[in-house]
């Protein structure tokens, strides 16, 4: 049945190419071999390496590295940053996607382009921007010093830099989805007497929820893993302004490989968790569709 599937982020099971479309066996084998070798070399090998080195000196060293005060502080800061950045960017993402897809206004194309800016700019430059704006010699530096507000080389700077870098994820996920869905259902709700918030909660949100969740997951993964921008604004004050990625680098530079990889494995686990949640979301979404499309017997 022709259900209108507008979101295409569900990994569709590709139909096997058979008959006249099928390539000769050697082409198929070569392609598969290339893909497998590439994957092994670039993805699986590094993955295994992380855990190999993390546990190389034993489980005790592993857990000692994780429970060290500086490491714990890094974990706390990373969680705090994500806890601020992800909700903020979610709200922004919904607002931006809403503005871009539902309204006509001057400067709309500029806004659409600007949303992508963080993807286009090197994270290090992004970090530098904040130094130039809020740093001691930056535009607001003197005023900030005067009022004893610390942004750069402190937690607010880290949050800002992370927010900047993870800015586009939610909006980027929602814009095509909302564009495809159009405004007809909202108009229908309007003619049925519904207003702003009711329309948002009852019509818009249910339609975008899986896309939104997907965007949030990606945003979170990046927020916790961001290195470049955060590294510039953090100042690397141990136990104060180090996030997990920064902590890994410091420990590594001190030649404590086992400890470095142990902490790194945390990020790895986060990546696995993200992938798991992502797969779950996709599975849920696909199942929801399947349930709606089959079930002729209801």
């Amino acid at each position: 049945m022709a259900g209108s599937v507008t979101a295409n982020y569900v990994s569709a099971t590709a139909a096997a190419r058979t008959g006249p479309l099928a390539e000769p066996a050697w082409v198929r084998r070569t392609l598969i071999a290339v893909a497998v070798i590439f994957l092994a070399l670039l993805l699986i090998l590094p993955l295994v390496t992380v855990f190999y080195y993390a546990f190389k000196e034993g489980v005790r060293v592993y857990f000692a590295a994780l429970s060290e005060p500086d490491a714990l502080s890094a974990v706390r800061l990373t969680l705090l940053t994500a806890a601020i950045v992800v909700p903020a960017n979610t709200l922004f993402g919904i607002a931006a996607a809403w503005a871009i897809t539902k309204f006509r206004f001057p400067g709309k194309n500029v806004l659409t382009t600007l949303i992508d800016l963080p993807f286009a700019i090197s994270p290090v430059i992004a970090g530098l921007i904040f130094i130039l704006v809020f740093g001691a010699r930056g535009w607001f530096g003197p005023w900030l010093t005067e009022h004893d507000i610390k942004i750069v080389f402190a937690v607010p700077g880290i949050v800002l830099a992370t927010a900047f870098v993870t800015f586009p994820f939610v909006a980027r996920e929602l814009i095509p989805l909302m564009q495809a869905q159009g405004t007809q259902e909202e108009e229908a709700a309007t003619t049925l007497g519904a207003r702003g918030w009711t329309i948002f909660w009852r019509i818009v949100l249910p339609n975008i929820k899986w896309g939104l969740l997907y965007g949030i997951i990606l945003c979170n993964a990046r927020a916790m893993g961001e290195f470049g921008a955060v590294s510039v604004v953090s100042g690397h004050i141990r136990g104060v302004t180090n996030t997990i990625p920064l902590h890994v680098q410091i420990v590594y530079n001190e030649y404590k490989f086992a400890a470095a990889f142990a902490v790194a494995s945390l990020l790895m686990l986060l990546a696995f968790a993200t992938l798991a949640v992502k797969s779950f979301v996709e599975w849920k979404y696909a199942r929801g569709l399947a349930m709606k499309e089959s079930g002729e017997s209801i």
Partner: peptide, 21 residues
């Protein structure tokens, strides 16, 4: 008067049914 207060029913060309309901 906004559409909500006009006492109308509207059937759209593509029906615009709420697909999650």
């Amino acid at each position: 008067l906004p559409p909500q207060k006009r006492g109308i029913g509207f059937v759209f060309q593509n029906y615009a049914l709420f697909r999650h309901m």
